[in-house]
Amino acid sequence: MNIRKLLVLAGLGLAAVGTYFGLFVAPPERHMGDVQRIMYVHVPSAWIAMLLYTLAFGFAIALLWSGRQKWDDLMVGAIEVGVVLNALLLVQGSLWGRATWGVWWDWDVRLTTSLVMAILFAGVLVLRRMAPNEERRSQWSAVATVVAFIDVPLVYFCVRWWRSLHQIQSSPDTVDPAMVLPLRLNSFGLLFLALAWMLWRAAIERSSRRASEVPLPTRVAIEESAHA
């Protein structure tokens, strides 16, 4: 069994148990009631999206340093899965905000920097499609990833640095253990799934590149042998 399948199996198992505990075992929060159960998907989405963007930043640096295409494959994988989770994070947060704040959206610093983060990294994916060749595509997207990454620490620390509607980070010391367990299970479950999808997306990028690399010389060779 390859690593991707192992990650998917472990991820699905952990997420299934975590979701069960989050929905049916963990107690409702004192003030928010049952709506707080959104936390068990919202917080893991945020953590893993930011972790993937951090990985993408590392891959971008490695790509700029070495020029090896495997870093480009991994970078696009990390960014794409990160953008999917970032989009989910915004939708889940909007639902939670509607129930607790009474609004679907507010131009609060945490919400705004999270939206900007999604737009910046989605922009990297759009930029890749506009590059004239493979070398430029890698360079442009690596530089754009480094620039986009500036927003990631802002998203994390903004609730401490500025006034925000959004609460600051909790710690396991201040949260009921019955709430910590599903949060951890779902976080590790989503982490394993996200890593599997990142590797899968990287493999697709590698296959696509090889398919576009092979044809020209092969075609020339075939044509030359046909004319000989």
């Binding site: 003030h31 159960r37 989405s45 999917v84 989910l88 889940q92």
Partner: peptide, 26 residues
């Protein structure tokens, strides 16, 4: 008193969107 009621519809919506989006991505 002081507890938000009717939260389950939002919880179901959030979990459903999550599962649907991830399934579409896969």
């Amino acid at each position: 008193d002081g507890v938000i009621g009717g939260g389950w519809s939002y919880v179901i919506a959030a979990y459903s969107v999550t599962v649907a989006v991830l399934a579409i991505y896969v």
